[in-house]
Design a binder for these strands. Structure first.
Length: 1060
RNA sequence: GGGCGAUUAGCUCAGUUGGCUAGAGCGCCACGCUUACAACGUGGAUGUCGGGGGUUCGAGUCCCUCAUCGCCCACCA
């Protein structure tokens, strides 16, 4: 046998076996003629495509390890298994990263490069990072079908995106609507909600008066409103008052009182003050508010100062009667809440007063046009002051305002009413809700179905356009031109061509939202082409953009393609079928769709999972997957999510380098429990002395850290200055992967032992009669473990599976079975059977472990193949060339034998007792120990057979075994408990005796047992317990009592003997 | 503000329908390089199961409540 190192060399195994697997093509799946093989349908997982923004983090390692475990198990089980890999173009994130880089490194902006230039640069970025990400996945051991690697922006996916968009457009599900966006006036683009951060800035709270037109006697002549943004008043379209101020005020009062009652004493005074103010407010304001409410009902108009416009006073619940004047100005185009008010009161309209550059537009009086929002603010306040509608002395309060800023430009965000492409969600959302309520899609754990259903239940239309360059450009061409022209004049004799294309299904077109039909007559209408108004535009959606004839014609007659790209999630939503070739009717699609299961994290249940179900149903008429497993998140030691920006992120490659991919994977599986997120304290590893330095909130953001132990400095991810960067880098790791590494090493060494003893292995069958007790015990346990592991993995209980294997492999296989074979290999007539059982059980264990620790198991499998290429029990068979494609162990209940297991437990318990006495009495291993066992004749026979093992495993021998055995005068005694009550282990310790220690121990044991006996007696004396509890529980307690009393008696006896 | 989850040994976590003298790994203590493994072996110590109520013969497990922490969603004129 080769000289194998005492420590498992994970790096070598990884380097050797991944290329081997790839070369052998084990990960490639082909569509098969018959879909179901041996009653097994194809097993498919599509990867949640990682963003090409950067490198993978530990969360990805978790996500992909969990997928790989299932994929590898199914492959071994004989399913036609496909794991479809790929990456996501991640529109905003990627474009932002590349733009930032370009600016920092080359001082160029996207405007310098232009659309094509920028997109070209992002593709370069993508090539680089995609390679890196796929490389990381391979290092993790992921068994993806790399021949099928997709990218959400590649031609196959693009085709699917266009087809889907076309279908939606032709179905009337795409429309142009208004939506408030976070507008970055500096970059002139909308930014998503998660790219907005809030920062408190000093501002003011201004009060203005708007004159009432024709007030009746007794009615107020002015309505006072308050705002933090005076300039937006130019876009006001209403003032709102609460529809039922009395009731609302009562409610607020009641809430406050509840709060007061619940609050601890020290927090009560401020609440009391609030209550007092409220009651004062009620007295002074309520009557006026009710009058205003009535005026609103009458349709009273207000004069909007500075504009000459009149706006209505309306009743709407948005206004809060308890605050300020109780009235609120409504600016639907520049405030999200006001926008909602508009949606409830459409008649008030919305006026956009801002251009995309942040300057005021033509919808405001001339003197304000072109001013920035900031300058307009001063002008408006001044002018209102001049008009006597505002008094800077009394009508202005200082106030800190939590202002939204763009994460990218760091400038304030303007809420801005922009035209947007929307997908109508009403019907689509319903299909996806039904899929879950009808259990066509099962979400695991079940509680996450709630967030899915709640979100879909809102049926909010999906804004799909993004003001970006990186992404799928919206395949709509729009005709712009002069106002009020007959379409026929513009298109001339091309009308018929376009109509034909509609008939052929190559394009779909609408005017003012109504479809244009294949009848050319429907095209001969007058259009009102207005740049900002799509309502009267002609829109042509081109089904296949590569159809250049169509695009050329459209552009020749004045159509221009929309500038926006689609939301990243649009292409991600198609992922399960687009990757399989849809809309082509490929064999892949036929075989592998719907996929089997989706494994992802909870934060994208709505963004991604729900939309995949929607689009799967819409395009394929079938759900994209049957099960969705939502896995835990990895948090750091402070319970915070890991992220690069916090500096607490762990690079899986650091872990792989330090502990090995197998350790990483096993650790992940071990930690993946159903309810808990994974908390993982993070440490720096000193590159100089390998010391681990605990990461704190302080040191995790430093560019350099000094080692606690050796005092030398190392760099971190934040190192920018040259002096920092030149330091060696300190890896960020977590000691929670030690468990996995140690486990792998344990398995490695057990294998090493086995291999060394299998050199003269001869294959052959072993009859049951030839098996010894420990063989039958191990095979019984192995069968049970096989069943448990499969069940656990079938139900996504990764931690259960990992723990079951860990405990079995370590405690039973290594600590008992392997130890016992040592004794047997020394006995020539036992050697052959021992070898065969050992080879078989190691083989099975390795197969069970393979999905979690693929590299280690392959290494062992290959080595095992060298000494025993043919092995197995009860029949032998040639081992497969790789454990990847070895058959998954089958559970065979004929091996399960609980009688054998309890007999074996006798041996384990006696051995344990002997060891305990040895340890307690401090008897060194070098001294052979004699012990006596008092037990039945039957047990005695079995224990006699175990003599070699007592010798090998405890350097002890049973000098007397049987019913008549009594304790020596100077004895250490352990009576066994539970099922083994009645068996007593005695060691004559007259040569060693530490009487005091033994007495002390026995006394404490006696006291503990006495207490316990008392507790059980109490229970049994309780008539209600005896009457109500199930008979078996009561019997159980009685048995427990009898056993414990017996045990107690023997302790007392031993104690007396010692005391005497 | 709405929803979801967590709180069990010093740390990180198991504990499946209520029947538990509450377990594991790390750490700790003692002994040991017993020829697979010191990344190891053998043995040991360690808990008011977050607080308070309730249901029950019986609660770590079910219900209510409070506290703390976390996540998601909404909002902050």
């Amino acid at each position: 046998m080769k000289n194998l190192p005492a420590q498992y060399d994970h790096a070598a195994a990884q380097e050797k076996w991944y290329p081997f697997w790839e070369k052998q093509g084990y990960f490639h799946a082909d569509p098969k003629e018959s879909e179901v093989v041996d009653g097994k349908p194809p097993y498919t997982i599509v990867i949640p495509p990682p963003n090409v923004t950067g490198a993978l983090h530990l969360g990805h390692a978790l996500n992909n390890t969990l997928q790989d475990i299932l994929v590898r198990m199914r492959r071994m089980e004989g399913y036609n298994t496909l794991w479809m890999p790929g990456t996501d173009h991640a529109g905003i994130a990627t474009q932002a990263v590349v733009e930032r880089r370009l600016l920092a490194e080359e001082k160029v902006s996207r405007h310098d490069l232009g659309r094509e230039g920028l997109v070209e640069r992002i593709w370069q970025w993508k090539e680089q990072y995609e390679k890196r990400i796929l490389g990381q996945l391979k290092q993790l051991g992921c068994s993806c079908d790399w021949e099928r690697t997709r990218f959400t922006l590649d031609d196959t996916c693009a085709r699917a995106v266009r087809e889907t968009f076309f279908k939606l457009f032709a179905d009337g599900k795409i429309y142009r609507g208004k939506r408030l966006v976070n507008w970055d006036t500096y970059l002139q683009t909308a930014v998503s909600d998660d790219e907005v951060f809030h920062d408190p800035v000093k501002g003011h709270f201004w009060h203005f008066k708007y004159p009432v037109i024709d007030p009746q006697p007794g009615e107020p002549t002015h309505v006072t409103i308050a705002t933090t943004r005076p300039e937006t008043m130019l876009g006001d379209t209403a003032v709102a008052v609460h529809p039922d101020p009395a009731k609302q005020l009562d409610k607020v009062e009641a809430d406050l009182k509840d709060k007061l009652a619940a609050a601890p004493a020290k927090e009560q005074p401020p609440i009391e003050a609030q209550l007092e103010a409220l009651s004062e407010h009620k007295k002074t304001k309520l009557a006026e508010l009710e009058t205003l409410r009535d005026m609103a009902a009458r349709g009273v108009m207000l004069e909007l100062p500075l504009t000459g416009r009149q706006i209505p006073l309306i009743a709407d619940i948005w206004s809060k009667p308890e605050l300020g004047s109780g009235c609120v100005k409504i600016t639907p185009a520049h405030d999200a809440n006001d926008y909602d008010v508009w949606q409830r009161n459409l008649e008030i309209g919305a006026i956009n007063i801002m251009n995309s550059d942040g300057a005021l537009n033509e919808n405001v009086p001339e003197k304000y046009r072109g001013l920035t929002m900031k300058k307009a603010r001063d002008a408006v306040v001044d002018d209102l002051t001049i008009e006597g509608l505002h008094d800077p002395e009394t009508d202005r309060e200082d106030r800190e305002i939590d202002l939204a800023h763009s994460d990218r430009s760091k400038t304030p965000i303007e809420p801005y009413l922009a035209d947007q492409w929307f997908v109508k969600m009403d019907e689509l959302a319903q299909t996806a809700m039904d899929a879950v309520t009808n259990h066509k899609v099962r979400i695991i754990p079940e509680r996450y179905a709630k967030s899915y259903l709640d979100w879909l239940g809102e049926k909010r239309d999906w804004p799909v356009g993004r003001q970006l360059w990186w992404g799928h450009r919206i395949p709509i061409w729009r005709l712009s031109g002069d106002a009020e022209v007959p379409l026929g004049k513009t298109l001339g004799d091309r009308i018929q061509t376009l109509a034909d294309w509609v008939a052929e299904g190559k394009v779909a077109a609408t005017i003012g939202g109504s479809p244009l039909t294949a009848d050319a007559g429907s095209w001969s209408i007058t259009i009102d082409v207005d740049e900002d108004d799509y309502d009267h535009d002609v829109l042509v959606c081109v089904r296949n953009e590569t159809d250049s004839e169509i695009v050329e014609l459209l552009e020749a007659v004045g159509f221009a393609q929309d500038e926006e790209v689609l939301d990243t999630w649009f292409s991600s939503a198609l992922w399960p079928h687009s990757t399989l070739g849809w809309p082509e009717e490929t064999d892949e699609l036929h075989t592998f769709y719907p996929t089997t299961t989706l494994i992802t994290s909870r934060d994208i249940i709505t963004l991604w999972v729900a939309r995949m179900v929607i689009m799967g149903e819409y395009n394929m008429g079938e759900v994209p997957f049957h099960e969705v497993y939502i896995h835990p998140k990895i948090l750091d030691g402070f319970g915070e999510t890991m992220s690069k920006s916090k500096g607490n992120g762990i690079d899986p490659l650091d872990v792989i380098q330090k502990f090995g991919a197998d350790a990483l994977r096993f650790g992940i599986a071990y930690l993946t429990t159903e309810t808990q997120d994974v908390r993982m304290p993070v440490e720096f590893e000193c590159p100089h002395c390998d010391a681990l330095i605990k990461q704190t909130k302080k040191n995790r953001i430093l560019p350099r850290v000094d080692c606690d132990k050796c005092g030398q400095a190392f760099s971190t991810q934040w190192a920018e200055k040259e002096e920092d960067q030149s330091l060696p880098r300190g890896a960020v790791v977590s000691d929670r992967f030690e468990l996995g590494r140690n486990f792998c090493n344990k398995i490695w060494n057990a294998s090493r032992f086995a291999l060394a003893n299998l050199e003269d292995f001869t294959p052959g069958e072993v009859s049951k009669a030839e098996l010894l007790l420990e063989d039958r015990w191990l095979l019984s346990r192995l069968s049970t473990v096989t069943r448990q592991v499969k069940h656990a993995l079938n139900t996504y209980r990764y931690a259960d599976a990992a723990r079951t294997l860990y405990d079995f492999a370590w405690d039973e296989f290594c600590s008992f079975y392997v130890e016992m074979t040592k004794a047997r290999f020394g006995v020539p007539e036992q050697r052959t059977v021992a070898q065969r059982v050992l080879a078989h059980s190691l083989d099975t264990l390795v197969r069970l472990l393979h999905p979690m620790v693929p590299f280690l198991t392959e290494e062992i499998w290959q080595l095992l193949g060298e000494v025993c290429p043919t092995r197995g029990l009860p029949e032998t068979a040639a081992a497969s060339e790789s454990v990847c494609i070895a058959e998954w162990p089958k559970f065979d209940d004929t091996w399960v034998d609980s009688a054998i297991e309890s007999q074996f437990a006798e041996f384990q318990a006696v051995l344990g007792a002997v060891r305990e006495i040895r340890s307690r009495q401090n008897i060194t291993m070098k001294d052979e120990l004699a012990f006596g066992v008092k037990c039945s004749a039957e047990v005695a026979t079995r224990l006699e057979a175990m003599q070699p093992y007592f010798a090998k495993m405890a350097n002890a021998h049973a000098s007397s075994v049987g019913p008549k055995v009594t304790a020596p005068d100077m004895a250490a005694s352990i009576p066994l408990s539970g099922d083994l009550v009645g068996i007593e282990v005695h060691v004559d310790i007259s040569d060693y005796i530490d009487v005091e220690a033994e007495q002390k121990r026995l006394t404490s044991e006696r006291d503990k047992l006495t207490k316990y006996v008392g507790a059980i007696q109490g229970k049994l004396k309780n008539e209600k317990f005896v009457a109500n509890a199930p008979a078996e529980v009561v019997d159980g307690e009685r048995a427990k009592l009898a056993d414990t009393e017996k045990k107690l008696a023997s302790i007392v006896a031993a104690l007396e003997k010692l005391g005497a």
